[in-house]
Structures are given as C-alpha cells and as structure tokens.
Design a protein around this nucleic acid. Structure first.
Length: 620
DNA sequence: CCCCCCCC
C-alpha cells in the first residue's frame, strides 16, 4: 500500500491554517484519566516532518484504542478536525478519522519527525486562518496558572512513557517556611484516595483548588469559625476544614493553586449533601497539623483540576439540592437583578445565565453577588462549574453556592470539544430547555381537553407541564382548605399553635402574636372529556369561593354552616384555567399533581369565538 | 464542630 503522510500539515495547523483531511502517523497516545468516567486520549501525531502531542481524540472515538483499531505507528486520515488556539498553544481535536494502515502493518516510525516548535516550523505551513474564523474563537484561560497540567507547555520525551506510580511519593524537602509543628525532613505522603478515618493519616501532597471565606456559626451546640479548602492530587480530591484556631494558624497562609504537604489531620465521613467532591471522607486540621509549601518544580505532577461533569440533559433526572459539576457554553447572559432575601431582608444581586451543552439541552444557572456583577462575558464562553446546586424551581435550574467555583474558558479537553461543537454546530441547533415555563408560568400553555392533558407524557410532567382548559368546578373539598400562616408579609409558612396565645413560624424562627389565614383549596375541575382534582392557592381559591381568605378563615372556624354555603355556591361555575401538571412521588407511586396557576371566570362570548375559529380551521 | 448559600 502506498502511504503518504501530509508533510507540513502539523506546522500549517499549528499556525492556525487549515489542511483538508490530513494524513498522520500516530506515534503514541496517552490516556487522560477519568473526569466523570470520561477518559480522553491524547495523541502524538506525525506528518513525517513534525510530530505534535497536542491532539485529542474525540471521546466517541475512544473505543478505537482498546479495540486495537488505533495502535502505535498506524496511519490515519483525519476526516474531521477542530483546531483551537489555547493561550499561546493550539490544540487539535480529531472528531472523525479513517485508519489507512494498522501500526502492525507499518511497523516503524515513518520519516524522521521532530517535535514541532515555532522555531523549527521552517515555513512549511500556509497562512493562518482569518482572525474572525470560528477556529480562532478559542478559550482563553482566565486563570492561566491553574490549568497547566492538562497540557504541559513542554512535551518531554518521557511523556509517552508508562504512567508513574501514584501510590507513594516523597514530599519535598523544603528549605524553610513550613507552617505548624512540622519537624524537619521528609515524610511519606499517601494518595488522597487512600485517606480513611482508620488508617494512619500521615501526610498528603496536594494542590489547593478552592478556598472558602472564613465563616462563623452559632447554634445550639456552640459557636465558632471555620474555613475549608478543596485538595487535589492525582488520585482524588478531598475537603479539608479548619476550625477556630486552625483558621488563625493556616487561613492566610494557604493559597489557591499552590501545592502543599499537609500532615496530621482527622478524617470523618463526608456529608454528600454538601459537596460535589467524590471522596467518601473529609478531613480537618488537628492540633499538631502542619502545612509545608512545595516548590514549583516539585508540584508539576500534581494535577490542577478535577471535575465530575454531568451532562445538562442528565440534570433533569437529578434530585433537588444535589451538588454537581457542569461544563457548558454560556449561550446567553441575563441582566443583573436585585432581589430581596426573604429570610434576612438583605438585598441580593443575581444574574441568570443560560448554559447549553452537546446534549442540545439548556439550563439556567444563577450567579450571586460579586460574581453576578462581574460576569460580563458576551462571547459565549465555555464555563466549567464545580459544585453548583441543582434546584427544581420551575423545571430544573442551577444555582452557584459560596463553595462553588467557576472557570471561564478553562484549558481542559471538554471545553475544547464544546468550543468546537458550539461554533460549528451547537449555536445553530434548537435546544431543549430544562426550564419549565418560567416567569409567566407557561405563557403559551396549549389549550387541551382535560382528558388529553391527563395522559401527558410523564417525562415532560417531571419538570412541570402547563396547559389551559375550560373547566367547571364539580366539587370542592371543605376539609383542610385553610391554614394558619405566618403573618410576615412574604412568609406563608404554616404556624404552630404554642398554646399560649403565640404562633410559631419555623421558617422565620419567630413567635408571633397573630397569624393570617391562607387558602389551599382542593377542587375538582371537569370538562366534557374528563375531570381532575387541582390545588388552588390563595388567589385562585379566593376567586373560586368568591371570598377573601381572611373572611373564609373566620367562618371556617366559627360559622361552619355559612362556610359550607359558600362552598356549595362555588360549585358548577365555569372558568378558563391554566393548570400545571407535575409528576410527584406519593406513597412510592408516581402520580400527576395538578395546580391551578391562573383562573378566569369563563367569558362565554370569547370562548365561543375561540371554538368557532377552531372549527373553521378544521373544516378548511 | 459547618452544612447558611438567598429571588422568582
């Protein structure tokens, strides 16, 4: 077989030029381990003249390596290639390829390729592509130093060798500056992965990837202050918390992105509810803890980033309040808003941004405070978020926490792939939204017969599904229609009777001298096709019963007959109603729950017009 | 030993 490599293609591509379906020899590959089980392969490609290690294999092609289709020395034609500039470097992503010859058939390195550098590029390539091309709209790391390990600036000869052992490593003998009670000399460090509450917890060498602010607490068990950092090595990550004196001792000294040897700590099970870190345990400082900075030269083997990315489409199935990592393109950026925190009466700044990924699904993420104010990027950056909270407000959404961290255009393979996908394809593809109709609560909710609406596809009911119907009230449940609520203006929480004339609100954590009546009216709505039970909150309930909750409450309490008469009168009135159907789990069973989100007395004239229009449409 | 993280 006549194999001809695309001589000069590496240099051309490295300068930002384009090469049509270049032919390369694969001189080696390296697995970049497991971010959320999504291993990636980095290839050393050669055009016979130059070789280059900044080529990533698209994940959908990963299988070719274990299956032996791609082997050392094989020759491939890159059918589809994305080239991205990443700060001063350039990364190629091979999206599709054809194997022209197996490595076993070739058996040796073709030509005498040298590692490509700008210096030896010797004019082999073409002119760089135009500055406005999609390829050049590449991630520019905002925090450069944090993202160096995935793509070392120097590709060394040893890079493609076997992977190093991670089980035991020596901590550096550091000249001077340790914090804490460290005695001099080396100590044995263990991989983060191996930390348990049971083993001897000598020391770990780890990079600080996130550092919290100092926070104080005060509760029934006492008060104090604390901070925490996220630590990472090549075996895993773990949260380290410092309480009280440890705050004074270590807080200012520990810097994000730096590598330290941490020795002496205690470990306990991690509460998964409050972290996206994968470790089963978390650690805290003890009395004789020490923190020793590592020299830069000693830190290169400690990775800088770790994510367990979840695809956006998958967030739909996440339970509420789960803490997750996500990488996505910021499709649009909302305005800065100011809202009042109900609990604290503090003013909050927020900004919603819309994220989209290769599942063609989008989700809204809320940024808070300074991060919301500072977010001004309108260039559809790729965003990697660690530790965002899943909220089920109106479908599914994400919210940043104080403990979350966000990187804009990070230099990681997932981000490059997303960049290429969005610029070439994603920006023009319609997306599914995980937002249940927001704000207007289904402003364009479709008209449905009730029968039709009640057999709605369960997957869309998962996040809340809106529809409109003409509906007649067929029955009303008189029991539990009213409850005593917290009198605070914005709080509607049910209060507890303290039996001393006071009413306790758990939400406000206060006792009040009075309460207000609130309505949760369960009514059966029907049309000619079927009927459903739906919940009418305050305003809708007041409309159905044609009385204010306040009046209804006192009647319910003191004049039952009058209350029943009101209910009787409310039956058989007709409305146009907007319902929200949502799948909920009740007694381990899925059931559709309906609430009435909008209610208007039926305007017969208007409704007849609507029916006439529909008839015309169907006859034509 | 915290674990609050806000709003519609």
């Amino acid at each position: 077989m006549d194999i001809k490599l695309s001589t000069g293609a590496v240099a051309t591509l490295m300068k930002g030029g384009e090469v049509e379906k270049p032919v390369f020899q694969i001189l080696g590959f390296k697995k970049i381990a497991g971010q959320g089980g999504s291993d990636r392969f980095r290839l050393n490609i050669s055009d016979g003249l130059h070789s280059h290690t900044f080529a990533m294999l698209a994940t959908q092609l990963n299988h070719m390596i274990p299956e032996g289709e791609l082997d050392n020395n094989c020759v491939i034609r890159a059918e589809k290639l994305i080239s991205n500039a990443v700060s001063e470097k350039r990364v190629l992503i091979i999206l599709d390829l054809t194997v022209l010859a197996k490595g076993t058939a070739i058996g040796c390195k073709l030509g005498n390729p040298v590692q490509y550098t700008e210096q030896n590029a010797n004019g082999a390539g073409g002119k760089p592509a135009g500055q406005d091309s999609a390829q050049n709209r590449a991630p520019q790391p905002e925090t450069k130093p944090t993202v160096k390990s995935e793509f070392p600036t120097k590709a060394t000869g040893s890079f493609y060798g076997q992977s190093k052992s991670t089980s035991v490593s020596k901590s550096p003998t550091k000249n001077g500056s340790s914090f804490g009670n460290m005695s001099s000399g080396d100590c044995i460090t263990i991989p983060i992965r191996d930390i348990t509450p049971y083993g001897s917890k000598t020391a770990i060498k780890a990079r600080v990837t996130n550092k919290s602010a100092v926070r104080t607490w005060s509760n029934s068990r006492g008060d104090g202050k604390l901070f925490s950092v996220d630590l990472l090595d090549d075996s895993g990550e773990i949260r380290l918390t410092g309480f009280n004196t440890a705050v004074d001792q270590f807080y200012d000294l520990i810097k994000v992105n730096e590598v330290y040897t941490f020795s002496k700590f205690s470990a306990k099970p991690a509460n998964k509810q409050f972290t996206s870190l994968s470790h089963d345990y978390e650690i805290s400082f003890v009395n004789d803890s020490s923190v020793i900075p590592c020299l830069d030269s000693d830190s290169a083997d400690i990775p800088t980033l770790s994510f367990q990315f979840l695809e956006i489409a998958f967030i739909e199935t996440c339970e509420n309040n789960k803490i997750i990592d996500v990488v996505a393109v910021c499709k649009s950026r909302g305005d800065l808003q100011t809202v009042m925190a109900r609990a604290t009466n503090k003013e909050l700044k927020k900004r919603d941004i819309t994220l989209v990924d290769r599942t063609n699904t989008e989700i809204i993420m809320t940024l808070w405070g300074k991060q919301a104010e500072d977010f001004e990027d309108d260039t559809n950056p790729v965003i990697a978020v660690k530790g965002a909270k899943v909220s089920d407000f109106s479908g599914k959404s994400l919210s940043m926490l104080n403990s979350s961290s966000m990187m804009i255009n990070p230099d990681i393979p997932e981000a490059h792939v997303l960049r290429g996908w969005y610029d070439n394809e994603g920006m023009n593809v319609p997306t599914k939204s995980l937002v249940g109709q927001r704000g207007g609560g289904g402003a364009n909710a479709p008209w449905k017969m009730i029968r039709e609406a009640s057999i709605v596809d369960p997957s869309s009911a998962e996040s809340g599904y809106y529809f409109r119907s003409k509906a007649t009230v067929l029955a009303i449940k008189r029991e539990n229609a009213l409850y005593k609520a917290c009198p605070e203006e914005r709080c509607n929480k049910k209060v507890m009777d303290c039996n001393n004339g006071m009413w306790r609100c758990e939400k406000c954590n206060k006792e009040h001298t009075d309460f207000k009546w609130r309505l949760i009216l369960h009514a059966c709505f029907g049309d000619s096709s079927d009927s459903i039970w739906g919940t009418c909150f305050q305003e809708q309930g007041e409309l159905v019963l044609d009385n204010k909750a306040e009046v209804l409450g006192s009647l319910y309490q003191d004049e039952q007959d009058a209350f029943d008469a009101i209910i009787k009168q409310a039956v058989f009135k007709s409305y146009t109603a907007k319902f929200r159907a949502k799948m909920e789990v009740y007694n381990n069973e899925n059931r559709l729950k309906y609430s009435v989100v909008e209610l208007n007395p039926l305007n017969y004239g208007e409704y007849a017009q609507k029916l006439l229009a529909e008839i015309k449409e169907n006859v034509a």
